[in-house]
Nucleic acid binder design. Structure first.
Length: 218
DNA sequence: ATCCCGAGGG
DNA sequence: CCCTCTGGAT
């Protein structure tokens, strides 16, 4: 099957069945989203949503977070992965927001990536969700699902390469939605360890299913 | 033992 | 390129 046809069927299916996807992280403003996305690295959204209400109540805006001690922030996020690093990142991020951007969340990839704890993936999420820009954040789900479905070539071995492969074939107006579609599919159907091919509606054009359903596959 | 919406440093 | 960070769920 042609790559173009794979993308067409992928977009068609989710447009039909999940027309308005959105992030499952809970947030009330761009600042809260930025904090939540930084915390979400190598951690489930569910856990972030469990600790974020008390964190946002104590540090409701960049000013209070910038003035906080790393030790106190740590006590709010101790149950997420890498709490020491993330506590430092959050305080450093808030200080950089205050000093360089007047407390506002910047709207360019370059500016966002200057913030401590904000790499290419997090910056793309902010651009996509907050500013609705056609950018593709490639996380572990997007990376895995893109390869399995055959939306990214096996030669795309880095997140950036997968990002370029997806951007080359997804119409701009679908990019923010496609980001969520790939994540949701990875989270609930195309699981890393035990993909639920039995209930997957996309296996008809999935390269991974094509392989695992071969007669002699072990 | 492996995975979860990665980033920073060597 | 590699390594480290490092809690909780499965």
């Amino acid at each position: 099957m042609q790559k173009k046809e794979r993308f067409r069927r992928f977009l068609e299916y989710f447009t039909q069945h999940y027309p308005e996807p959105k992030t499952e992280l809970h947030f009330g403003n761009p600042y809260e989203l930025l904090v939540a996305v930084i915390l979400s690295a190598q951690c489930t959204d569910k856990r972030i949503n469990q600790i974020s209400p008390s964190l946002f109540a104590r540090f409701p805006e960049p000013e209070s977070l910038a003035a906080a001690s790393v030790d106190e922030v740590f006590t709010y996020i101790r149950s997420v992965s890498y709490p020491n690093n993330k506590a430092k990142h959050l305080v450093g991020m808030a200080n950089a927001l205050m000093e360089k951007f007047g407390g506002e969340i910047p709207a360019t990839l370059e500016e966002l990536q200057t913030l401590p704890g904000v790499g290419r993936k997090t910056a793309h999420v902010i651009l996509s969700v907050v500013y609705n820009e056609p950018t593709m954040a490639v996380d572990t789900h997007v990376f895995r699902v893109s390869h399995r479905l055959g939306l990214a070539p096996l030669t795309a071995t880095t997140p950036l390469a997968v990002e370029k492969a997806l951007m080359a074939h997804i119409p701009k107006q679908y990019v923010p939605k496609a980001h969520h579609w790939l994540i949701l599919h990875g989270r609930y159907v195309c699981l890393a360890r035990a993909p639920r091919c039995g209930v997957c509606e996309l296996k008809g054009f999935c390269k991974y299913y094509e392989k695992v359903s071969e007669p002699g596959f072990s």
